[in-house]
């Protein structure tokens, strides 16, 4: 990822707002630690799917089915950023053997 001027958290906020076209939500107004689903932004599973697809397209990180931790990963911007960082780290570790 070349965009280092924005934190991953900020990028995710922007990505969610853009993906879901949340017109009346400013990315910076999203609380990094607030729940994304149900309460909080009130997103649902179709939204989650769109976010998962967008995250895959943008960061190359796939959300796998039957991962019991999905709910944790998608809890908040914070947990989502941790998830993306962890997966990217794994990918880099396995992609750079030399």
């Amino acid at each position: 990822m070349s965009q280092t001027d924005a934190t991953l958290e900020d990028q995710l906020k922007r990505l969610i707002v853009d993906t879901l076209a949340l017109e009346d939500v400013a990315p910076e107004s999203i609380d990094t630690n607030a729940p994304l689903f149900g309460e909080g932004l009130g997103l649902d599973s179709i939204d989650a799917l769109e976010i998962a697809l967008a995250i895959h397209a943008r960061f190359g990180v796939r959300t796998v089915a039957n991962d019991e931790k999905n709910r944790e990963y998608y809890h908040s911007i914070k947990s989502l950023a941790d998830f993306v960082r962890a997966r990217q780290g794994e990918a880099q570790a396995s992609a750079a053997p030399a």
Partner: peptide, 15 residues
């Protein structure tokens, strides 16, 4: 089942 893990369910559908 749609209720278990909505996020995982959707990616499973995609797969």
């Amino acid at each position: 089942h749609l209720g278990d893990d909505p996020i995982g369910v959707m990616t499973r559908v995609q797969d």
